[in-house]
Amino acid sequence: MNTKRILIRLSQILIVLLGVSFITYALIYFSPGDPVRIMFASTGTIPTEEVLQETRIRLGLDKTFFIQYGTWLGNVLRGNFGTSFSFQKPVIDVLLQRMGPTIALAVMSLIIMLLFSIPLGVLSAVYKDKWEDNVIRGVTFLGITIPNFWLGLIFLYIFALRLGLFPVVSTTVSLKSLFLPALTLAVAMTAKYTRQVRTAVLEELSQDYVIGLRARGMSERDILLKHVLPNSALPLITLLGLSLGSLLGGTAVVEVIYSFPGLGNLAVQAVTAYDYPLIQGYVLWIALIYMVLNLIVDLSVEFIDPRIRRAA
């Protein structure tokens, strides 16, 4: 990708961020709740009407929508996302504090997923329409269909409550507390990726070069490991980037089930507490991570694959 196209992509990211922030701001502005009352409610005091009015003026909430949005945007550009109502801390601090656990969870679930989906997908492709393929496809269908919140509860019930192998509440981040949430997330992803690996490998196996290699007497094993697999990895990298992006947004359902201290749980808390600055900061932050990650993935795919580099 040349500099000009990177610049275009970056400006697109900026436009999307502006749009997303505008939509969330508008939604919050026109929603029925009164942020000042909610703010006082979360501190436990009952304010008089005068105090309410004063706070509104102090926070600039008496201004028109566009002035408020403009002020907020100006602060964000200077790196100030405001103060969270419910945590009484700067939004950016709250977000950064939750980033670590969420990254750990995302990476671990991706590792579990890759460990299973690559061998299963290859097996499924090599034995296409044989019983191995049929069994794997049946299992992946189930994996996609079973809701992750149910699966999470079942894992929690069996492995944490009944067998006591894992903690029920994962407030600290350790391999042990990460395992069940990561496994729950990995099941649906494994099912999805097994199908993708199968399709990608089948696509490569039907190429002419495979026939050529077979004609030259190369073993099926070598064809698969040295030629087919590396070639089928490319389309998967883009997908992996997308998955990592959504995982980094926090996976609300799974994090809530395991009381995991990640971004997803934070988002649910923020919305439940009507913590507007936090919701606003969270949405913007996730959008930024997601899009920057996509850009990096696109760049690295071009870097790895000379064909795309030349086409660009």
Partner: peptide
């Protein structure tokens, strides 16, 4: 260009 569930939670909650 945005993880859908995040926005869905925000919209539904607001």
């Amino acid at each position: 260009s945005f993880p859908g569930m995040v926005l869905a939670i925000a919209i539904a909650g607001i």
